Computed example of a mutant assay.
Amino acid sequence: MSLFAWLRPRQIEDSVRQQVSELPTPAPLSEDTLRRQRWVVLDLETSGLNTNRDQVLSIGAVVIEDGAIDFGQQFERTLYQRDHKLTSSVLIHGLGPSAIAAGCDPADALLDLMAFIGDSPVLAFHAPFDQRMLTRALKDHLGYRLQHVFFDIAELAPLLNPQITLREAGLDDWTACFGLEAIERHNASADAMVTAELALVLFSQARRQQLDSPVLLDQHLQRWRRRRHQSHGF
């Protein structure tokens, strides 16, 4: 692909634009209880870690509602990527050329995902990465601007457990810490599910710490971030 072709904006069909216009608007964070909030737990598998160049290859998501994982609300898609190049990342996520070739159209998958998310806030482990990758994919394929609130489980875990010292802890570290175990790692759906299980543990802790609403949890998280930045001299 030439540089000029790469820079040229992708043409988005009118039918896609119409469907995008019908997607729900994200709701502001609620002051109601964590239990009454509908949450969407998201995980992406990608061709690499470069948020400016790599592609979303698969998406897994599950809903937390009424204080529990709703197994009737699960989302899974593998995306067809025409320009996908085989890299060493396939050794991690296992999505080889045949799986990608059999994937669905990215625009269709992303429309389905945003309809699934609806107006809910999103939870993810290392959420900034997923948020940036999803933001670019939505812009490229749908001309859609992602505005949903993301909570990072990788931040909430140490925030609510200051007594636990885990340096640069990953998902495996925190799930093991609470006796959880993923059915399969680096599979978007399985990772979303175990992240949801971890989120429920953290929500239980948040309630005990009088942080029983999305707004209170977000405010506490913002203060925690400021203190960390100050302590690191930023």
Rank of each mutant, 00 (worst) to 15 (best):
P9I: 07
P9N: 04
Q11N: 14
D14I: 10
S21F: 04
E22N: 12
P24S: 06
P26I: 09
S30P: 08
L34C: 04
D43K: 01
G48M: 04
N50K: 13
N52I: 15
N52D: 15
N52A: 15
R53N: 13
R53C: 14
D54G: 09
G60Y: 07
V62M: 08
E65R: 11
G67V: 05
R77K: 05
T78C: 01
D83P: 00
H84C: 14
V90D: 02
L91E: 12
L95I: 08
L95V: 07
S98F: 12
A99W: 05
I100L: 02
A102C: 02
A107D: 00
A109I: 03
L110T: 06
D112S: 11
I117A: 10
A124P: 03
A124H: 07
H126S: 09
A127W: 01
A127K: 07
P128C: 01
D130W: 07
K139W: 13
K139Y: 12
D140P: 09
D140F: 15
G143T: 01
R145F: 11
L146R: 02
L146P: 07
V149L: 12
D152I: 05
I153W: 01
A154C: 10
E155W: 10
L156I: 05
L159E: 04
N161K: 03
P162A: 03
L166G: 03
R167F: 14
A169L: 06
L171R: 04
T175P: 09
T175D: 00
C177H: 08
E181A: 12
A182L: 00
R185Y: 01
A188W: 03
A188I: 02
A190F: 05
D191F: 01
D191Q: 09
A192I: 06
V194T: 05
A199R: 06
L200M: 03
S204V: 02
R207I: 12
S213F: 02
S213Q: 04
P214T: 08
L216I: 09
D218R: 14
H220A: 15
H220L: 15
R225K: 11
F234E: 11
